[in-house]
Simulated assay, not measured.
Amino acid sequence: MSKPFYKNKLAGSYGVLEGQVFSSQSSFLQLRLVNAVGGMVELSHQHENVTTENLVQVSPEEVQKALLGF
């Protein structure tokens, strides 16, 4: 997976950025979540709307360790 990974600091979830969502009051970034499937990290069908203040870029190794335990 070539996109950088991000962690939602509030929810503790991991994902990749997929775009922006605009509402009448504000705009959010759309984080497509990743999960562990069969010993690999894969994109899920779940999304979270997040703000830049709640995101931190993380390494693929951190994502693997958090989701797969190694």
Rank of each mutant, 00 (worst) to 15 (best):
Y6M: 09
F70Q: 14
L68I: 05
S23G: 15
V58L: 10
V34T: 02
S2V: 14
Q46Y: 12
K65N: 08
Q46H: 13
A11W: 05
V34R: 00
G15Y: 01
E53T: 10
V56E: 15
S24K: 14
F70N: 14
N49F: 06
E42Y: 08
F28I: 00
L29I: 08
L17W: 10
G38I: 10
L10A: 12
T51S: 14
P4W: 06
L33N: 09
A36I: 11
K7R: 14
N54A: 12
S59P: 03
M1W: 00
E61L: 07
A11S: 13
L43S: 04
V56I: 15
L67E: 04
A11G: 02
Q46G: 07
V50M: 06
H45R: 03
S2F: 01
E48C: 03
K3L: 13
Q57F: 08
L17R: 03
F28W: 14
A11Y: 09
V56D: 12
Q46T: 05
H47Q: 08
S27I: 09
V21N: 07
V37D: 13
M40G: 04
G69D: 15
F28G: 05
L17S: 04
H45Q: 08
P4N: 04
N35G: 12
V41L: 11
P4Y: 01
E42N: 03
N35A: 14
Q57R: 09
G69V: 08
Q64S: 12
Y6H: 09
S27G: 05
H47E: 07
L43F: 05
E18I: 04
Q64L: 10
S26F: 07
L43K: 03
Q46F: 03
L10W: 01
K65T: 07
S59T: 15
G15E: 01
R32Q: 10
A36Y: 09
G19H: 06
F5K: 00
L43P: 03
L29G: 00
L33A: 05
G39W: 05
R32Y: 03
V37S: 11
K3A: 08
Y14C: 05
E62Y: 03
R32H: 05
S13W: 00
F70R: 13
P60F: 09
S27R: 13
G38R: 07
S27H: 03
L55W: 06
Q20T: 11
S44E: 11
L33I: 05
K65P: 04
H47C: 02
F70I: 13
E42C: 02
N8A: 10
V56K: 12
E53Y: 10
G15S: 06
S24V: 11
K9P: 03
Q20G: 02
S59H: 06
K65S: 08
N35W: 02
R32A: 02
P4S: 13
L43M: 06
S44G: 11
M1H: 01
N49E: 14
L33M: 10
L31G: 00
F5Q: 02
L67W: 02
K7H: 02
R32K: 15
P60S: 12
V50Q: 04
E62A: 11
G15N: 04
M40R: 13
G39L: 08
A36H: 05
M1S: 15
N8P: 11
G39V: 11
Y14W: 12
E61D: 10
T52D: 13
G19A: 13
E53I: 15
M1P: 03
L68Q: 14
N8M: 07
F28C: 02
P60C: 11
E42P: 02
S26H: 12
N35T: 08
H45W: 01
E18L: 00
S2N: 15
